[in-house]
């Protein structure tokens, strides 16, 4: 028998719709806030709020278990990029301690058609915010920042993710 879950299956939308909407948001924010550093902060905050909610969607869709190791986490983040942005970043540059890695991509739907003249704006600042928010909900505190950015002339875009600590007091009962 066929599954009845058609409503919940990932809805496909044209990525251009997302790209343009996001572009409109960023340019509007630049108009209103002026200082690009504040825009970066705001974008990251929006991303954080999205991540906090998006994680539930990710868990419900993929029924993934808890990550007890950074490599698993990297895998899941990669999977989330595939699920939500239909892009495949590569995970590289592991630190020796295994607590820090980079996500590298050369094409991101969010920044297609973008040409920047503004130097301090981080156009995709939403993404690190979302990663941070989502991981915080599964009791993982991370730091997330851009090392390279294609929009600033680098060959690829590189996002660094660093494990800070496990949020022990937020771990749900039964898992501590």
């Amino acid at each position: 028998m066929s599954r009845q879950t058609s409503r919940l299956d990932a809805k496909k939308v044209n990525s251009e719709l997302l790209t343009l909407t996001y572009g409109a948001l960023v340019s509007q924010m630049l108009k209103e806030i002026e200082n690009p550093d504040d825009v970066n902060k705001q974008l990251e905050r929006i991303g954080y709020n999205m991540g906090v909610r998006l994680i539930e969607d990710f868990l419900a869709r993929t029924s993934s278990g808890r990550c007890l190791e950074m490599r698993e986490t990297a895998d899941k983040i990669q999977q989330a990029f595939r699920l939500y942005l239909n892009m495949q970043p590569t995970v590289t540059s592991w630190s020796n301690a295994g607590d820090e890695f980079s996500l590298v991509w050369d094409q991101c739907p969010l920044s297609e058609w973008v040409e920047m003249n503004n130097s301090s704006l981080k156009y995709c600042a939403l993404i690190p915010g979302a990663i941070k928010g989502a991981l915080q909900m599964v009791q993982l505190d991370v730091q997330c920042w851009f090392v390279q950015d294609q929009l600033k002339g680098d060959a690829v875009t590189e996002l660094r993710v660093k494990y800070i600590k496990r949020l022990e007091d937020a771990v749900p009962a039964g898992e501590d």
Binding site: R53, E56, D57, R61
Partner: peptide, 20 residues
């Protein structure tokens, strides 16, 4: 219960007027 979780993540969390 898993299906209810899916509904929760769709209809409650994606509602912009719902606060966690």
């Amino acid at each position: 219960l898993k299906r209810i979780y899916e509904l929760y993540s769709d209809y409650a969390l994606k509602n912009p007027f719902y606060s966690l």
